[in-house]
Amino acid sequence: MSSTTLAMRDSMTMLRRNLLHAKRYPNMTLSVAFIPIFMLLLFVYVFGGAIGKGLATGDYVNFVTPGILMMATMSGSVVVAVSVSVDKTEGIINRFRTMPISRASVMTGQVVGSVIQTMISVVLVTLVALLIGFRPAAGPLGWLGVIGLMLLVAFAITWISAAFGLIAKGAETASNIGLPFQFLPFLGNAIVTPESMPAGLRWFAEYQPFTPIIGTLRALLMGQPVGGQGLVAIAWCLAGAFAGYFWARSAFNRRADS
């Protein structure tokens, strides 16, 4: 077998391992979906009436759901940071490293497994949104775009989280990675439009990565023109994914020489 086939095979083995974890402990996936669902209900039913009036962009649930979906992606990424960190502290990563397997497969399995879990919780959140009145207007191409963008975001965030899990001192530190990520969409256009914010914050909200990403997602879901923000969103995702990947790779290899 060539080394690429072996790498694929090892990555599939590692992926199976991660999915087995997810299957055995479905609570992990469910709890990841729980927070965004709670947020969705909170914003639609509690704050929605008041915020929605100020926005005047139609039904508030249609406005806030893309932002909540982004949050679901963020909270999904916590799983990978914790799981990588546990692998590291329990010594199983060291076991893998003394075996004749593709080194990249360890992290690839973790990341792909986590992205699948994240996508499951994103679907759960979408279903709840549909139940409470979310009415997307996307055509087949639009949905394809939505799925593609969500995957791209998930990969970017998950690679960054996986790298963080490798350098974190323990599972507890690793689990904290989610907090800033989860709150970043709030400081953008997830819940409200940035126009309503004070000057400094508005500037940040307009230029931070999640604003074009959520904007693109919203446009795709509601069947509106995406415009230039689409490219900016893709650029941010690709930059994040590459940065995360190379960071994780160097963190993984660095442990070999220290």
Binding site: R17, R24, Y25, V86, E90, I92, N94, R95
Partner: peptide, 10 residues
């Protein structure tokens, strides 16, 4: 190793 490197979830 000194600290059993098994996958605790499996």
């Amino acid at each position: 190793g000194q600290f059993a490197a098994v996958d605790g979830y499996l």
